[in-house]
Amino acid sequence: MDSEMRSPLTVQGLCKNYPAFRLENVSFSLTPGTIIGFIGRNGAGKTTTINSILSFIHPDAGKISFFGLEYPEHDREIKKGIGFVSAGMTYYTRKKLKEITGVTKTFYPDWDDGAYRKWLDSFGLDEEKTPAELSNGMKIKYALALALSHGAELLILDEPTSGLDPVSREELVEVFLKLKDEGKTVFFSTHITSDLEKCADRILFLQNGVLKADDTLENYQAAWRIVECGNEIPPDLKQAACGSCRIRDGYTVLVRREDAVTFESREASLEEIMVHLEKEAEEA
């Protein structure tokens, strides 16, 4: 109970059934002041999980708590402590940023105008502009500025780097690291795993609605190795394989670290782990 009280977000046994998709028994708990990467391919259930966390959809089963508080009794307190940013959503595209901010701040007694100005300056945002006039990266930065100015301790980001160029993604990763330094918790869903390798402390891997991994980035990456082979995968490697991918000169095969000792192998990137595991799931 004590650890649940301290955790910015605890999800226990989350289930949601749709006719063509099931989110099954997803459970995890976040540690304050860390960056958590929530990965999985498109359609794996990341957005369904986030929508359940934000109470946009009603889970069929499970418990979600924020610093020990639950919906719907503590709806308002919970929302004061979290900030949500989604790449796919832009609010009121033809309103000036200052108008949107003017309305937003009235809902937060702890709104910090000084912090807001600081974030606007640091992101190079002009309040006279409308969201329609901002690039995707700047829209996300504006949404972040709003969330950070009302004192959100937990930032929930749904695919924030999708559709951004590498430089903008790099800038956002730097922002997330800065937020972590300030003690904020960043829960960050993405399928662009290279961003997470630069900043995440922990990885949650969701596959077909099932949470397949919940580990530190280092441990998770260390648990896997990549073996490169020619156009034929040897039978002993095939037996140890947890997914293989065709490359220009043959195949790359993902194997567990303990099974990799008899092969010449190298470190696996997060993307390679995800892609190989997805291929294995597809073939199964």
Partner: peptide
């Protein structure tokens, strides 16, 4: 068109 519901429901309101 302006995603008003998702904006509103992330505000501290029910």
């Amino acid at each position: 068109e302006n995603h008003d519901a998702s904006y509103t429901l992330t505000l501290p309101v029910s």
